[in-house]
C-alpha cells in the first residue's frame, strides 16, 4: 500500500476497518509520552483498528476498537496515529 493512502485515524470513516501504518515521532515533544502510551495500549503497526462510535463533539472523543480492546481517544490522540483503510 502506498504512503499516500495513509490517513490519520481521526479521519477514518466511522465503522471502516483499517490497519495501523505508523505512529510518527510527534512534532511536539510533550506528545512523546503520549505516543509511547498509545503503542503500549496496542496501537502498533499492523494492528487492525476501527472507530465504533463518535462522541457528541466533532469527532471528539472517538471510541476506537484495537485488537480485543476499545479505547476512548480524543481527536488529538487519534490524529497522531496513521492508518491504511482496508477495502
Amino acid at each position: 500500500m502506498s504512503r499516500a493512502s495513509r490517513i490519520p485515524l481521526a479521519q477514518l470513516p466511522d465503522g471502516q476497518w483499517a490497519t495501523v501504518a505508523d505512529i510518527p515521532v510527534p512534532a511536539d515533544p510533550t506528545d512523546h509520552d503520549l505516543v509511547l502510551r498509545l503503542m503500549e495500549l496496542g496501537f502498533v503497526p499492523g494492528e487492525r483498528v476501527r472507530i465504533v462510535a463518535e462522541g457528541l463533539g466533532r469527532r471528539d472523543p472517538l471510541a476506537v476498537r484495537v485488537g480485543r480492546s476499545t479505547f476512548a481517544l480524543r481527536h488529538h490522540e487519534a490524529s497522531l496515529i496513521l492508518v491504511n483503510a482496508l477495502p
Binding site: F71, A72, R74, H76
Partner: peptide, 12 residues
C-alpha cells in the same frame, strides 16, 4: 487547560 488526553479504556 492545555490539551489533556482521554485514553480511557471501555472494557468489554
Amino acid at each position: 487547560n492545555a490539551h489533556v488526553p482521554l485514553l480511557m479504556e471501555l472494557p468489554s
